[in-house]
Design a binder for these strands. Structure first.
Lengths: 396, 396
DNA sequence: GATGGTTAGTAAATGCTGTTAACTAAGTGT
DNA sequence: ACACTTAGTTAACAGCATTTACTAACCATC
C-alpha cells in the first residue's frame, strides 16, 4: 500500500512490536514531555516494554531525553521528546499554480522550503523540475547531515486508493499519471518511503498530525483554491485518511447544492464549485486568469457587486461546512487553500452562515471549532512530509 | 468501547492472537469453503498458525469442517464453513413504528423473528416490552439449546461514539437515553456482548458483514423511512463504521440541497428530508399519519399530482446519492428503509437521476452498483446482531 | 498395484514478544 | 539516618508465530 497507514489485519510478532513502537511515538508526539512511566500508564503497556522500546528509539534518533520532572515524592521521571535533530522528511506539492517543497523535522518544523509559482506543464517535465528543486532543497545547511526518511508528494486530484497513481487532475489536464515513477527516473533523489496523495488529504493529515495544542479527535480540512476539496483524518495513534473506492472521499466541490444551478466544468449543474472556487469567483468578478484574485477583490472591496458575489460564495462555503458536518461529523473544521487570502470577505459570511444554521442535532452538543489558515502555501507539502514520517515510524 | 470494533493501538500477545483469530474467521465468512491452506495463503499466516487457530475455532463451535476439495494432484484440502448450529445472536430494532427482533446464526440466517407494529412510548416501558419479546423469542424451538453471544439494539437516532447512549431520537421525543441500562433491569435476558447503535449504522453493518456474493470494498446504506439516514462500512477483516464526533456521520437527511427551501423540523430550510422522507411525503400527499403511505401512493399511482411529488422526491434521493458519492465514495450503494415499499415510483426517478448525473470524476471509472432492498423490516435488527458477532469473535 | 510427485495438514524445536517480579536509582519527608 | 515513594532496569518466564521436518492423502504413470 502507498498510504501512510493501512492497519494490518493479521500479524506476527514483528507487527506487534512495530504497533507498540508507533503507539509510543505518537503518545510522545501528542503529549511532549511525558516520562516512560506516563507512557506506560497511558498506553497500557508495561514499564518494561516501554523502557526497552524507548531505549531503541533514543538510540535511533527518534526520541531524546529532556529535563527531570519535578513532582514531589519519589524519583522524578525523565521527560521525553521527539528528536528534531537527526532526521527529516521531504514534502512537495504539485499545485495548479506552481511547485512547493519543504523539508521538515519530526516535530513538523519546516527546516527549509522552496516555492516556484510557475504552473506545471506536462508530467515528465514537471517531475524533472521538481527533482531539481528537491536536490537544491537537500543542500540547505541544516539538512545535509541528517538522515532522510523519504518523500511525500501532494497532487491536485484524486489518487487511486489501490496504487500511488494520480487518476485525474482536471486543472492540469493530467489523467492516470504515475508521478512517482517519473520522479524515480530522476537522479540524486533520496531513498526511503515515497508516497503520493491528494492535496487536501495530505494537508488534512499534516494539520492533524502536527496539531499544536490539545489534539482534536478528528478533523476535516476544507481546501478552497481553484477547486474545492476536503480531507478527513481521525485516529489517535494511527491517523486514518478515508479515501473511498476511487479516492473521491471529500470531493465536496462537486456536491450539488443548487439543483438546476450554473453549469460546472464537471458536466453537472449547481455544484458547490460553481459558487465558491477560484475559477467561479474569477468568472463572476471578471478577473483575469493570471491576475491575483485576492488583490483584485481587496482592491474592489467597497464595490457592491463584489460584496454580493463574496457573500454568496461565503454562504455557499458555510453551507458546505454544514453539510460536511452532517455527513462526516469531524470534531474540528479547518479552512485552508488560496481562497483564504480573501480574508473576512469570504470567511465572514461562511462562518456566520455556519453559526446561524446549526440545527437541533448540532445545537445539542458543543459547537464545532473552526480554524482558518490564512496562508496555506506549504500546508499540503508539509502534510505529505507528515505522512512519510508516520509511515517510516512503522517501518523503522 | 461499545462499538463492534475499536482497532486496538497497542497490544500484548493476547491481542495478536485475537487479531489473527478474527482475521481467519472473517476470511471464512467472506469466502466460505476455503481450506486451511487457502487461508494461510490469503492471510499471510503460516500453515501452522492457521491450523492451530482453526482447531480451536472448530472445538468452540465457530467453524465446521465440510467436504474435501477435489482439485487434481496432492492431498485435497478440507473445506471450512462458519458453524451455524451452535451459537446465535439477538438483534432488535426500536423503530418509530414498532419493535423488530431477530435471532440469527453465524451465517446471518434469521432463525426466528418477531415484529410488533406499535410505536414505542417512553423508554422504560419500551425496554420492558422489548425484554418480554426477547424472552419470547429465545424460547423458539431451534434456539433454546444454542449459546447466545449477546444482544444488539438499533435505535432511530444518533448514538454517542463514546458511550452506548442514544443522544436524540427526534421522532420518539427521547433525549440522552441509556437504553441498555433500562434493558439490564429486566429479568431473564442473556449475558454476552451488549451493543447499541444507530439504526442506519446497524443496517449498513449487517448488509456488509453478511453480504451474499463477492463482498464489496465498502458500502453506504441509505435508510429512507420517517427520516433519512445513512450508514457507512468499510474494512475487509474488521468492518469499521465511522461515527464521527457526535455520532452524526451519515445524517444526510439534514444536508441542505435546496437553499431557502421548505422549513425542516430541525430548524433549517431545504434539508433533504423536506423533499424525501416519510413525513414530507405524507404532508405533500395529505396522507394521514396512521394510514399506510405505500398503499395510499400505490392506490393513486395514476394521479398526476402524486407522480409529480414522487418524481421530485426520487430526484432528491438521486441527488443525495450523488452527493454521498462525492463525499464518502463507497464502492456500493444500498437503498433500504420503509420508503422502498413505494417501489419504482420512487426508485425509478432516483436511479435515473443518479445515472444521468455522473460527472467526469465518476464517469472515469465503473459505475457504482446500487442495490435496492424492497423489504427491510429486519435489516437493522439483523445488523445489530451482526455487530454482536463481530465483537464476540474478538473476545472469544 | 507399486512408485514418485504433489499438496494438505500436524508436531516439535526455535526465536522473539510482552509480562512478571524483583531489583536499583533517585528523589521527599520525618 | 531512616522510611517512604515513584522511576526505571533487569532477568526469569510464558505465550505467540515461525521454521523445519514430518505424516496424510490424493494423482499420474509405469
Amino acid at each position: 500500500m502507498h498510504n501512510a497507514f493501512t492497519p494490518q489485519t493479521s500479524g506476527d510478532l514483528n507487527y506487534l512490536k512495530s504497533l507498540n513502537r508507533s503507539t509510543i511515538l505518537s503518545t510522545v508526539r501528542r503529549s511532549p514531555g511525558l516520562s516512560r512511566a506516563d507512557i506506560a500508564l497511558r498506553t497500557g503497556l508495561t514499564k518494561a516494554t516501554v523502557g526497552s522500546v524507548v531505549q531503541a528509539l533514543v538510540e535511533r534518533g527518534w526520541l531524546r531525553e529532556g529535563e527531570l520532572h519535578a513532582r514531589g515524592g519519589g524519583r522524578p521521571g525523565r521527560a521525553l521528546y521527539l528528536d528534531g535533530e537527526r532526521h527529516y522528511m521531504l514534502g512537495a506539492e504539485v499545485g495548479v499554480k506552481g511547485l512547493r517543497l519543504v523539508a521538515c523535522n519530526l516535530l513538523g518544523v519546516v527546516l527549509a522550503s522552496i516555492h516556484q509559482e510557475e504552473p506545471p506543464t506536462d508530467p515528465a517535465t514537471t517531475a524533472k523540475r521538481l527533482a531539481a528543486l528537491l536536490v537544491q532543497l537537500r543542500q540547505a545547511p541544516d539538512i545535509a547531515e541528517r538522515r532522510c526518511l523519504g518523500l511525500g508528494v501532494a497532487v491536485p486530484g484524486p489518487v487511486s486508493p489501490r496504487a500511488p497513481i494520480l487518476s485525474l487532475a482536471p486543472n492540469l489536464g493530467w489523467v492516470d499519471i504515475d508521478f512517482l515513477a517519473l520522479l524515480r527516473e530522476q537522479p540524486d533523489l533520496p531513498d526511503g518511503v515515497w508516497l503520493l496523495d491528494n492535496e487536501a488529504n495530505a494537508a488534512a493529515f499534516g494539520e492533524f498530525y502536527f496539531f499544536e495544542g490539545v489534539p482534536p479527535e478528528s478533523i476535516a480540512y476544507i481546501s478552497a483554491g481553484s477547486g474545492i476539496g476536503c480531507g478527513v483524518v481521525s485516529g489517535e495513534h494511527f491517523p486514518l485518511v478515508p479515501r473511498g473506492h476511487q479516492g473521491l472521499v471529500g470531493e465536496i466541490g462537486h456536491t450539488v447544492i443548487q439543483p438546476g444551478g450554473a453549469l460546472c466544468h464537471c458536466g453537472n449543474h449547481g455544484c458547490a464549485e460553481t459558487l465558491v472556487s477560484g475559477w467561479a469567483l474569477r468568472e463572476a468578478l471578471h478577473v483575469d486568469i493570471d491576475a491575483s484574485l485576492s488583490n483584485a477583490v481587496l482592491a474592489r472591496a467597497e464595490d457592491g457587486e463584489v460584496q454580493a458575489v463574496m457573500k454568496r460564495a461565503g454562504e455557499a462555503l458555510g453551507l458546505l461546512m454544514l453539510n460536511l458536518h452532517h455527513t462526516l461529523n469531524p470534531s474540528m473544521l479547518i479552512l485552508g487553500g488560496s481562497l483564504m487570502k480573501l480574508g473576512e470577505s469570504l470567511t465572514g459570511p461562511a462562518l456566520a452562515y455556519f453559526a446561524t444554521h446549526q440545527n437541533d442535532l448540532l445545537r445539542q452538543s458543543q459547537t464545532v471549532p473552526v480554524k482558518v489558515i490564512g496562508d496555506s502555501t506549504y500546508v499540503a507539502a508539509r502534510g505529505a512530509a507528515a505522512q512519510v514520517m508516520a509511515r517510516a515510524a512503522i517501518e523503522i
